[in-house]
């Protein structure tokens, strides 16, 4: 079953547009949603949450259209915006007391179990929490109302490596029973290499790739060679950089002649992102 399905999403602003954004997330998996700043990650996420009116396209959560079943589906969605805090001068227990009234499946037992697990003191004010603890508090709220789909916008941005690793471990534990799915946007690609099952890569408002993580990594090759070798593959490269040793460039695996003596290696997600961004620069 699909936890999330985004189909042919279009949204036009004066200086930016989402163009035919489509991807799907299966239930019980983590999808990393990557892209540079301004690529369209938050716009897509806000479209999923029906906070933005899309020009066309369809978004289905747990099999139902969000535009038609928004109230019902928001009972099953938990979200966190990594860089936005709410009512920071209020205590956790005050914010929780207000929030829980909105959810019919709220469980105090589950809530307190997550507070203990995340070592959250409900007498602390939101402003007193570290960024990682704030994300954990958002997760505790979401899980206490039985959210099946967690939509997290840059939850690890601004976190130190230890807190990030801790949070990624939490994400992996959450999906273990197959009931919860996570869509997790970030530009810190190393986070996704650790925990994501699927990757959706957005660039300039357009989905470049959406696939199982290893398939995505396998579908590209990072080439390095001399300047002379560059001329052999230049036309087929997505983009390339010239350096003192020759060149490095990204190519679709299907476009690469494996009998060639150009050195080819599996790229990281970060390298894929960088070379796609470089491609845009070339066209600009």
């Amino acid at each position: 079953m699909l936890a999330l399905e985004v189909r042919h999403l279009h949204k036009k602003y004066a200086d930016f547009q989402l163009k035919d954004v489509s991807f799907q997330l299966e239930k019980g998996y983590i999808m990393g949603f990557i892209g540079a700043n301004g690529a369209g990650k938050t716009t897509t996420i806000k479209s999923i949450l029906n906070m933005i009116r899309v020009d066309s396209g369809e978004i289905r959560v747990l099999g139902k259209n969000i535009a038609e079943h928004e109230m019902e589906l928001k009972q099953d969605i938990g979200c966190a915006f990594g860089d936005i805090d709410f009512y920071t001068r209020s205590k956790i227990k005050t914010l929780t007391a207000i929030t829980k009234k909105f959810y019919k499946n709220w469980s105090d037992d589950v809530y307190y179990s997550y507070l203990r697990r995340f070592k959250l003191d409900e007498n602390k004010k939101i402003a007193e929490l570290s960024r990682g603890m704030k994300v954990k508090y958002s997760l505790a709220l979401a899980l206490s109302h039985g959210a099946k789909l967690l939509i997290l916008d840059e939850p690890t941005s601004g976190l130190d490596p230890v807190s990030r690793d801790d949070l990624l471990g939490v994400f992996q534990q959450l999906i273990m029973d197959g009931e919860i799915s996570i869509l997790f946007s970030t530009h810190i690609t190393s986070d996704l290499e650790k925990c994501a099952d699927f990757i959706t890569f957005i660039q300039d408002g357009r989905i470049v790739a959406s696939a199982e993580k290893n398939d995505l990594l396998e579908s590209y090759r990072l080439l390095s060679g001399s300047e002379k070798q560059l001329h052999e593959v230049k036309e087929r490269l997505i983009s390339y950089k010239i350096n003192s040793f020759g060149f490095t460039g990204l190519i679709h695996t299907s476009d690469f002649d494996h009998s060639s003596d150009i050195h080819a290696a599996a790229p990281s997600l970060e390298e894929i992102m960088i070379y796609f961004a470089k491609k845009e620069d070339v066209y600009v």
Partner: peptide, 8 residues
């Protein structure tokens, strides 16, 4: 943003 995240 807080209000629109709620099921209302």
């Amino acid at each position: 943003l807080f209000s629109t995240m709620m099921p209302v």
